[in-house]
């Protein structure tokens, strides 16, 4: 393990002295590749903490530019990066925090045409997207590609986290088989969010990712964690794998990626 530099010994010392991490675990983190969907409220803290932890390769995909209204919660961006692509802004922030980390900035929209090619070289996918079409696209792609997925969602004062291990645990469609009709989904105009909420939820997602890489502890497999910031409550709901799930069940009806309707307004 002496191949750590002196800087790395100092930077990661609080990891290395943990029995569950150690030098070997830190090496796993440095060799890990994580793909993050979205460089917004969730993607920022997830990427920030994974970069701090020394996760060696972090890709982020997002097609938006930084706006002033983002800065209430999207902590990787700043007034200096207003108008710039979010992924570039985040890349600069993460690489300034930790030069060990290679951040791959993808300024484009994730779609059924590019997702399989993007995720194939990564160990874990993180969903920090803000809309249902993307959430279902990412779920279905990860199930088909067999990639572990740490999914997070936030709205107003409530957040959800779940970890999908294809072939082993549940998937997002076991939980909610179909996308809700557009009228039932709160649009950005209706939906505020407490600025710190994505920090909590993104922190939980980053923790799930680190445990998956290290192979330690328990993840939210077959479970959905619901955090209520107003009440300060955490609630775990069991989500059994559905044998009749259209994408991960015994006889799946969804065997290739669909035309995920993108008519929902994107939250900024």
């Amino acid at each position: 393990m002496s191949e750590f530099t002196e800087d790395q010994l100092q930077r990661y010392s609080r990891h290395i002295i943990l029995p569950e991490v150690g030098g070997k675990g830190q090496k796993k983190l440095l060799n890990a590749k994580v793909f993050i969907i979205g460089a917004g409220g969730l993607g920022c803290p997830v990427g920030y903490y994974l970069a701090a932890a020394g996760v060696g390769t972090i890709a982020m995909i997002d097609n938006d530019e930084v706006e002033l209204s983002n800065l209430q919660r999207q902590i990787a961006h700043s007034v200096k990066t207003l108008g710039k692509p979010k992924v570039e802004s985040a890349k600069n922030t993460f690489e300034s925090l930790n030069p060990d980390v290679n951040v791959i900035a993808l300024k484009q929209r994730i779609s059924k045409n590019n997702i399989m090619e993007f995720i194939k070289d990564y160990d874990i996918v993180v969903d920090g997207s803000d809309n249902f079409p993307t959430r279902y696209l990412v779920n279905d792609a990860c199930v088909m590609a067999g990639k572990p997925l740490v999914s997070g969602a936030i709205l107003r004062f409530e957040g959800q986290v779940t970890t999908i291990i294809p072939g082993d645990g549940h998937c997002y469609r076991c939980l909610f088989e179909e996308m809700p009709p557009a009228g039932l989904v709160p649009s950005c105009q209706e939906a505020g969010v407490l600025g710190v909420l994505p920090g909590v939820v993104g922190g939980l997602q980053a923790t799930e990712v680190l445990k998956l890489i290290l192979g330690k502890g328990d993840v939210l497999k077959n479970e959905l964690l619901i955090y209520n910031a107003l009440k300060t409550t955490f609630r775990k709901v069991k989500v059994p794998k559905n044998p009749d799930c259209p994408v991960c069940g015994k006889n799946p009806t969804i065997t290739e990626l669909l035309d995920y309707d993108a008519e929902y307004c994107t939250m900024r």
Binding site: M1, L9, S13, R14, I16, I17, G22, K24
Partner: peptide
């Protein structure tokens, strides 16, 4: 400390 333990732990791991 903690680099004393960091070095000792890395040596033991190997």
């Amino acid at each position: 400390c903690p680099y004393t333990f960091v070095k000792a732990k890395l040596a033991i791991e190997d």
